[in-house]
Design a protein around this nucleic acid. Structure first.
Lengths: 260, 260
DNA sequence: GCTTACTTTATACACTGTATAGAGTAGCCT
DNA sequence: AGGCTACTCTATACAGTGTATAAAGTAAGC
């Protein structure tokens, strides 16, 4: 099997993956021949998390994880079937460690949904690789399950049936992830280009006579300038989140009203 | 400068990039020394588009583009400064070729916004690489400018000020892109794993006693099953789009009402 | 003490974007 | 005409990826 660098999750042998996801840390490996293993799956996952948290998926190479742990790259393959499964384990671990404060019984749904949106948004600065990952067929480990259970409860009282509740959660999480991705992309470009948005604009603007032609693009030039002033730059992630979340909640409120 | 494979846009020398974006196809290259160029920038961009449209960014390698055009890889670098700039040109070309039927003067804003959402959604099946690309500091070429001008007009009559109009457009486009990404990710995983969602589920379900424990995860198991039945699978992109777009429009309507 | 299962290591492959250096071509000036 | 020079195009090279494969080392069970 070739490399392909797909950064996807949900590949590989299901039984082995699920066994790893629900593994017991306590496992006493009694009666196995050969040398005892010098590491644990948890150690591998933690080392991988440290690398990816610090430098994104680019920094997460099997060679780097191995070096971090003081072994050669191929050693990792006795703990984990491959990189795809390692990503599954990392994702479930992050979800498992999320804080899940219980909802008050008469907390309004807007507060609860805002809370889960905020909690998900808070994930990304700490784990920037989450926006690079294709999360399809989420690994059904303890982290994923607990998170899903908890977040579905946020929609209690909105008057949605089960299918609409799942759709609503997908919708909210999609919104949060979309904004986080835009924000992290913007920050990555600033870092890689060693140029702030302001510097980039200053470099381009003198050359942009054709693009910024007010007679050809009256709306674009006017609105673009107003937005640039209001955002104090090309893109204001915090503003986009506030604006979008208010729209999301209003949209859900309209759905709830219709359902009643 | 090392490779890094960042698939970003908005890098490189601004003047050169802008010159390429606003290039004249008609350019008579009179009075240049040395052999005449055997290709054109347009030919390079078209070859790159054909490759990326067919096989995503994985298929878009400088070597493949060169082979398609019957030259050696390094030849491309006389037409285009590098891969990042090539991606900028591809993106602007795609936007430039979008259909932009004029809006009727008393067409309601919901119809217009739905139209631009649909048009953007329609981009992705044809150009799957659009979801893989980090679009930051969009290349300010003719395609980007015309698209922005056109799409801003869709919000006429909603009663938004300029800043809110830009935010609303960003919000709508983010929603569409987010859904398209999820859909294409799902399809890519089906292809790469050579396993449909149904087969994947059949492989996992017998092993999932712990995950699907109804007493530990009552909501998750109930809602998950209802959704799986309703979607006829793990994920129904068309359903998510319909659901989400209705929520987006309702959210914008609430904003408009507030602004009036 | 031999077999056997296991852990760990070393090497190898095909592929990426592009820096660098060189070979070949043709317009311009004397 | 002949040389300079700007230009196009080619060949080679580098450091890096995930992991297949094969070999070397280790310890439990008979």
């Amino acid at each position: 099997m070739a490399a392909k660098e797909s950064n996807s999750s949900g590949a590989g042998d299901p039984a082995r993956t699920l066994e790893l996801l629900w593994r017991d840390g306590s496992a006493a490996p009694a009666g196995r021949r050969g040398p005892r293993q010098g590491l644990t799956v948890d150690a591998v996952v933690d080392a991988a998390l440290a690398l990816a948290d610090g430098g994104g998926l680019d920094a997460l190479t099997m060679r780097a994880v191995a070096q971090e742990l003081g072994v050669t790259p191929m050693t990792l393959y006795t703990y984990v079937p491959g990189k795809a499964e390692l990503l599954d384990l990392m994702l479930d671990a992050v979800f498992l460690r999320m804080d899940r404060p219980p909802f008050g019984p008469d907390e309004p749904w807007r507060t609860r949904v805002t809370a889960i949106a905020d909690a998900n948004r808070a994930l990304f600065p700490r784990h920037p690789w989450l926006v690079e990952l294709r999360i399809v067929r989420a690994p059904l480990g303890p982290g994923v399950m607990n998170k899903y259970e908890y977040e579905l409860a946020a929609f209690e009282g909105l008057g949605l049936d089960d299918v609409a509740r799942d759709s609503a959660l997908t919708y909210v999480l999609g919104f949060v992830q979309s904004g986080a991705r835009a924000e992290l992309d913007a920050r990555a470009v600033e870092r890689e280009s060693a140029m702030s948005d302001g510097e980039w604009w200053d470099a381009h603007e003198p050359l942009l006579a054709r693009a910024l032609d007010e007679s050809r693009f009256p709306l674009a030039t006017r609105v673009g300038e107003a937005a640039a002033i209001a955002y104090n730059g090309l893109y204001d992630a915090a503003h986009a989140y506030r604006f979008g979340l208010a729209r999301v909640l209003d949209g859900l409120a309209a759905l709830g009203a219709r359902a009643e």
